[in-house]
Each structure stands twice: as C-alpha cells, then as structure tokens.
Amino acid sequence: MPTPDRPNSVLAIDDNVDSLALLVPILRNLGYETRAGTSAEMAMKAIKASPPDIILLDVVMPRMNGIDFCKKLKAMDEYRNIPIIFLSGRITPEDKVAAFSAGASDYIEKPYNSEEVAARIRVHLALESLRKEQALQAETLEKLLRDRLAADKHREDQTTMLVHDLRSPLQGIGSVLEIVESSIDAASDPDLPDMIQTAIENVKHIAGYTNDMLELSRIETGQMPVYKRSVEAQKIFRQAKEILNHNPILQFEPTDLVVEADMQLTTRVLANLCFNALKYAGNSKQIEIQAQADGDDQVLFTVRDHGPGIPINEHEKVFGRFYQLNKVRQQDASSTGLGLAFCKKAIEAQGGKIIAQNHPEQGAVFSFWLGRAG
C-alpha cells in the first residue's frame, strides 16, 4: 500500500531479459517502485518478501507459465487481491479468455507503449485502492454492528425512556402549530401555510413513531398484558373493517370459527397486515382476508394481496424493526417500519406464529395461527 513516503510498488516478471530491460525503465520513469524477475519462482520469493501493489506477468515462461502462476496466487488468500496484468507479444482471443479465467485484471501487448502501460496500471491501482477502502468500510460497519448489538438492550431502554418523555412536548408543539395555522395571514407570506402544514404533518409522524416504539417495547418486555378468551373470528374481522374505514378493496370472507385470542391485540395485528397490504397492492385489486381451520386446534388467518410480492431472501426480515421495502420508503413517508415487528410480537405473545410468503400466482400472503376455541 503506498504512503506519502513510498510510491506504489510494481513487480515485473518476464523470462525475456531484453523485454524487462525495456519495461523496467518505463515503470521507474512513471514513478513506481519497481522490482523484476525472470521466473515464477523468483516472483513468489519477491511477493512473500514484500507483496507488491500490482504485478506485470508474462504469459509464456519456463517451468510454470503465467496462467498457472496467476491461478496459484489467486488461490492464496493473502495475495489473491493483488491485480495482475499479463504481458504478451501476441495474445489470441483464447489467451485472453484463459487469462481472465485465471483471475487476471488486464493485459498489455508487446512492444510496450509507455502511455498504455501508464494508463492500465493507473486504472487497476485505483480500482484496488477503491476495493481496499470498501473492505475497510465494511469492516468498520461490521464492528459498529457488533458494538450496537452488544449495547442493544441498554440503547432500547434509553430510547423507550426518551420517546416516552417526548410524547407531551410533541402534543404541545402540535397544538401550538395548529393555533398558528388558524391565525396566520396567508397574504403576508403565501408559502407560510404550506410550511406550517408540513411542520404539523412531521410532528404527527414523529408522534406516531413514538407511540409505535413504546407499544413495541411494552409487548417485548411483557408490560402489555395479554387477555386471551374465546373470540369469534368474525368479530375480529368487523373491528378491523372499522379501523380501516370499511375500505371496499378489503374482502373479508365470512367465518364461524372461534379462537382463543386477545381481542384487541389480534384486531390490531389484522388491521396492520391489511394496511401493509394496501400499501403494496395499491387500489388496483382486492385483498382477501380469511380465517380457516387448520387441524382440530388451530385457526389460520391469512391476508393476501396482489402486489409485487416479497423478495424470497427477505421473508424472515419483514418482521424486523424498521423493515421497509424501497418502494414504501419512497412513497410512504409515514411508515415507521415497526408495524410488522409489532404483529410478530403480538402473535407470539398469544402463543401463535406468523409468517410471510409469496402466493404462487401473484402477491404476498401473511399468515398467522392462533389456538382454536373448544
């Protein structure tokens, strides 16, 4: 790795001494710290002594040719990221395929053109520098993640206390903004009403976020009581409909099943899942909500939309805190990413299970199981 006191280092390997005699001065004139060798064996000794920033390697060499030596280096973890540029007097398409398949970054044809040599080396040194920078950033992020997870419980306690203390000030700010909105003179500043309205919406969003955080924290810590009793699934459907203003897109199929559940929690879970489906499916197609017997002791609730579905590798992630698909991030600024996390905790608190899947035809299906009342 170059430093302000040391330039990039180049290792040039070619069994043709005359060829090296032409190449080495070009490299040194370009300001690179240059070493040279005439065989793969010499190259390996030089690399082990001090790994270069880049290697220029002849394709045709005795005992071990450049292709095989490149494969050998790329199989070694400590040297695999060193860029290798092949040197060849006449490189065929087959040679190029073999070179890139072996892990080469580029190739330079003989006789050497100093400007071409400079350009190709510069590009691959820059790419390698970028790779190292990204690797360092990834390592830093990984460490930050480990540190965050280690302190997660403490942070969550502090966050819960903070959002709890924010509720009253937010209510006060919202009230003042509404008073200001009703009394401002739009003629004095035409932009002021929109600015005040934006501020009011932002305060409402933050207030909603604090409520979601508090409720999720309460159910995670067992501070939100769970009262299970025999409840008609149809009654849960009716209350969810009311929460969602009887949206005609939501199609609740009639059912006569009875579940052992906390009425309030289960209704909120179902409403959250329907609201989530509405965000993804839009207003184009219906959303089907069902309750079906699953064996003698379980009732399966499903919410199916006709939207784009969920990427398979994210089926488990959707119930994590702050999970949001890019589409929702861009179109729904009010979403906090806590709704599905709450659903999972609320169902598990009742001894049930919840999963996300894609429908074989189209869309996503959220399913949760609760005990069937005897």
Score class of each variant (00 low, 15 high):
residue 6 R to L: 09
residue 250 L to W: 03
residue 237 F to T: 03
residue 240 A to Y: 01
residue 276 N to E: 02
residue 169 P to D: 09
residue 129 S to E: 09
residue 65 N to K: 05
residue 280 Y to A: 13
residue 103 G to V: 02
residue 16 N to W: 02
residue 119 A to V: 09
residue 101 S to P: 05
residue 34 T to I: 06
residue 113 N to M: 11
residue 91 I to T: 07
residue 68 D to T: 09
residue 78 E to D: 13
residue 304 R to V: 09
residue 240 A to R: 03
residue 336 T to M: 03
residue 277 A to G: 09
residue 48 K to L: 11
residue 28 R to F: 07
residue 239 Q to Y: 14
residue 40 A to D: 04
residue 147 D to T: 12
residue 287 I to F: 09
residue 216 L to H: 02
residue 100 F to R: 02
residue 84 I to P: 02
residue 216 L to G: 01
residue 303 V to D: 00
residue 132 K to G: 06
residue 349 A to T: 02
residue 295 G to A: 12
residue 116 E to H: 11
residue 152 D to C: 09
residue 184 I to Q: 10
residue 108 I to F: 01
residue 319 F to N: 00
residue 368 F to I: 01
residue 112 Y to A: 11
residue 141 L to S: 12
residue 258 V to W: 03
residue 213 M to D: 02
residue 271 A to G: 10
residue 4 P to N: 07
residue 76 M to D: 15
residue 203 V to N: 02
residue 311 P to D: 10
residue 214 L to T: 07
residue 308 P to S: 12
residue 84 I to V: 14
residue 165 D to F: 12
residue 337 G to C: 05
residue 220 E to G: 03
residue 76 M to E: 14
residue 370 L to C: 05
residue 365 V to Y: 02
residue 370 L to W: 01
residue 21 A to H: 08
residue 31 G to A: 08
residue 185 D to N: 15
residue 344 K to M: 00
residue 32 Y to M: 04
residue 241 K to E: 09
residue 152 D to I: 14
residue 238 R to Q: 15
